[in-house]
């Protein structure tokens, strides 16, 4: 495994002014990543690809991730000076984190056989500021994967040679891998449903009168 943190430092000196942030990974995998500002993504990618010590010539995996807007209630312990005495006071801080879409890149080097170096870039929000630069001109392997992310998440990649839907049909309007996607209600027909499934099944038992066949009525 390579040292992501030192690459981050090197990048900061090599490309001053670029938004680069180290993101630690607390899980046992310890695969930490670099959060790159969208506008600097191409420069960083090119640097990583060309640098003789790293030579990340192989972009293995491109992933979209959806983060909904969420409010976090955090209990923050604060030391306050009450009546001249230091006391610990718990405070609930409510924080709203705006939603964003994230694209994660996994880089490897084939000649040097190291990796993965994980880059991530975020869009401004989930509705109108969803553009990120495309890395397809640098690594062809991003071509279909970026198209897939455009299809399923709705991130638009500037500079992609052929940005169309990859998996769904062209007339489709939603982005189904987003967390708030509502799928068509068309499948709860188990013979013995219960709970919420029963409710949905019952909704299907009284079809609209236009195409209601006579034998299908709930009693």
């Amino acid at each position: 495994m390579i040292d992501t943190e030192s690459i981050a430092n090197e990048l900061k000196t090599a490309l001053p002014g670029c938004g680069i942030e180290f993101v630690a990974n607390p899980s046992p995998s310890a695969q930490s990543s670099l959060l790159i500002q969208g506008t600097d993504l191409v420069a960083v990618a090119q640097w990583l690809k060309d640098h003789s010590e790293y030579r990340f010539d192989y972009l293995s995996n491109v992933t979209g991730v959806d983060h909904l807007e969420k409010t976090i209630k955090e209990k923050v312990k604060k030391t306050q000076v009450v009546d001249g005495e230091e006391q610990e006071v718990e405070e609930t801080v409510e924080q709203t984190i705006p939603g964003y879409l994230e694209v994660v890149y996994h880089l490897y080097s084939m000649p040097l056989r190291h990796g993965p170096l994980i880059l991530r870039a975020r869009t401004g929000n989930r509705s109108n500021d969803v553009a990120l630069p495309s890395l397809t001109p640098i690594w062809r392997s991003a071509e279909f994967q970026e198209r897939e992310i455009f299809d399923l998440y709705g991130v638009t990649f500037d500079g992609h040679p052929d940005l169309r839907r990859l998996l769904m049909w062209d007339e489709f309007e939603d982005h189904p891998m987003r967390k708030d996607y509502v799928e068509p209600d068309d499948y709860e027909y188990e013979p013995t449903p219960h709970g919420p499934v029963l409710e949905r099944a019952n909704a299907h038992q009284t079809p609209p009168s236009t195409d209601a066949p006579s034998e299908t009525q709930s009693d």
């Binding site: 489709f172 068309d186 013979p191 013995t192 449903p193 029963l198 099944a201 038992q205 079809p207 195409d211």
Partner: peptide, 25 residues
Amino acid sequence: QFGAHDLHPPSNPKTWTPPQSVRSQ
């Protein structure tokens, strides 16, 4: 036909009707 969210129509009522649920109430 391909629709904006689903196929249109979602099923052919001539060949298929939702099966009667045993617990339908």
